[in-house]
């Protein structure tokens, strides 16, 4: 069963010893439908990573609560709820280094499955399978994760999360640092896991073409708040609003707007991909 995620009046900040940071999430109400694929966009520091961290208990609400499936995360929480949530929610961090710790890549990837009671021999099998799925050679299993290139580390971090077989995937800029071919392969891999396994997936990205290609819905964040949450075509049809939130539109949409302005016409639909734009250009007779 795919999982739903709910935020009810969630306010949160980072604790700095005795001092608290300014609020980074401000009265957030959110309903993420089970089995949906949502992109989270917004400019630097708007709270995207913090929103993801609140979904797996790395950032605990000071007010309100987060509900993942049947588990509730709130300030007066017990450890068991957090443990349940972390088992169900696989999070790929913005910087892969922050989630690599094993002496070898194999240890690193096996950690999740072992922790959830999978026998060692089976965990090793899983590790071998997932490293190959993220485009790495199995010989990498015996290497230290710290002797890898940036993109290789990213792949190992993603492999480690896939090995957990989570119900919810929260991915913080998973494509950053991947070469273009690798990025496409890995996002396709994530997309097929999402559909085949009925996952609920949230993806933070600055690449609006990824949003156009993979997501159904979009959340726009601005200064610790969700300022928009809608299906992607509605979000990207609203270019005036998006400018205020320092958010771009996909290349195809941007190009469409230029042509529309230059010609003083309007296309029948909002184009989000090169394919859609090509169709539209042919339809209005520009080529």
């Amino acid at each position: 069963m795919a999982m739903q995620i709910l935020f009810d009046g969630v306010t949160a900040d980072y604790q700095l010893g005795p001092i608290r940071s300014p609020r980074v999430l401000k009265s957030i109400n959110l309903e993420v439908k089970p089995g949906s694929f949502t992109a989270i966009i917004g400019h630097t520091g708007s709270g995207k990573s913090s929103l993801l961290k609140a979904m797996n208990g790395l950032l605990i609400p000071s007010e309100g609560y987060v509900e993942v499936g049947n588990t509730i995360i709130k300030s007066s929480n017990n450890k068991r709820a957090l443990k349940t949530v972390r088992k169900q929610v696989g999070m790929v961090f913005q910087f892969p280094e922050s989630q690599l710790f094993g002496e070898t890549v194999e240890q690193d990837i096996c950690f999740g499955p072992l922790n959830f009671g999978v026998p060692l021999s089976q965990a090793k099998e899983i590790a071998k399978e997932v490293v190959q799925q993220v485009g790495l050679d199995p010989t990498i299993l015996s290497k230290s994760p710290f002797s890898l290139s940036g993109g290789q580390k990213r792949r190992v971090a993603i492999a480690g999360i896939l090995a957990m077989n989570p119900k919810v995937l929260v991915l913080d800029e998973p494509g950053a640092g991947l070469d273009p071919v690798g990025k496409k392969e890995i996002l396709n891999l994530i997309s097929s896991w999402h559909h085949e396994r009925g996952l609920t997936t949230l993806l933070v990205t600055h690449d609006m073409d990824d949003v156009a290609t993979y997501a159904e819905n979009v959340i726009v964040m601005e200064n610790g708040r969700i300022v928009m949450h809608d299906d992607k075509r509605s979000v990207f049809s609203n270019e005036q609003q998006l400018i205020n939130w320092h958010v771009d539109v996909p290349d195809a949409r941007r190009f469409q707007l230029k042509i529309e302005q230059e010609m003083g016409i309007k296309f029948g639909q909002v184009c989000l991909t090169t394919e859609e734009l090509t169709e539209a250009l042919i339809e209005v007779g520009l080529v």
Partner: peptide
Amino acid sequence: LVMLDPKSR
């Protein structure tokens, strides 16, 4: 520049 939003980039 990978983690900058498109406008900042």
